[in-house]
Design a protein around this nucleic acid. Structure first.
Lengths: 112, 112
DNA sequence: GATGTTTATCGTAATATTGCAATATAATAA
DNA sequence: TTATTATATTGCAATATTACGATAAACATC
């Protein structure tokens, strides 16, 4: 194992999966993309480039990362590509935080 | 602005804040630290190093990042330091995903 | 004071991410 | 076929993260 590389093999699948999802959300441009996906009432077909202060290749890269993490899906629609949110992945994250909230409430008095 | 640096100033405070929180969760070791904080029924005082397959300086660095992002708090307890989860930050994330879930349900039929 | 224990910081090498210009690819339109 | 439009990929420079040995700092105990 080299220095500098994340030791994913030492963690559970669940931990790696959650980290991957969180990491994909760990950039304001990608939060902004999801915001836009939620704001417009349908899937987006490429107009994100006009919405964000980033060049087209940069947006494309961010979309790719969101897609790789499974947070969005992309459907080819003729000339354009139609992106939309993947509810399943967001549900994983929602469950994670809801779970944490429960645990915290249970042990509230025992902690500093 | 140099190449390679995130353009945080072009995004909203909310987007940057969410991205910061998500980024802090974007590493399996940090998920594992939170897991451990939730598992043990009190705050932890340093024994994470024995739990994770990483060297002490590396753990210390991860703890620092979690603390900087506001996900955990650290109280000095004599010789040791007592870390515990910061409920407020996790609530921010929980609200974010709960909100997304709502929005998705509303527009379910309109999307691909 | 000297010693041990706990946690943080420094320094550095390896790896990963960010951003964009240039270019490529793919579908549609003329 | 030749544009035109939409998106992806390549290549590269800048920046950031990851990991850890070595060392420092803070406190407790002897």
């Amino acid at each position: 194992m080299k220095v500098g590389a994340t030791k994913t093999e030492h963690f559970t699948d669940r931990q790696n999966k959650l980290a991957t999802l969180a990491k994909a959300l760990g950039h304001p441009a990608r939060i902004a993309i999801l915001d836009y996906l939620l704001k417009v009432d349908t899937c987006i077909c490429g107009d994100i480039v006009n919405e964000l202060p980033l060049a087209q290749p940069t947006i494309s890269q961010h979309l790719k990362e969101l897609k790789n993490a499974g947070l969005i899906k992309g459907n080819i629609e003729g000339n354009a590509i139609c992106y939309c949110i993947n509810e399943n992945s967001l549900e994983v994250l929602q469950d994670y935080f809801a779970n944490i909230a429960d645990e915290i409430n249970i042990k509230k008095s025992k902690c500093c």
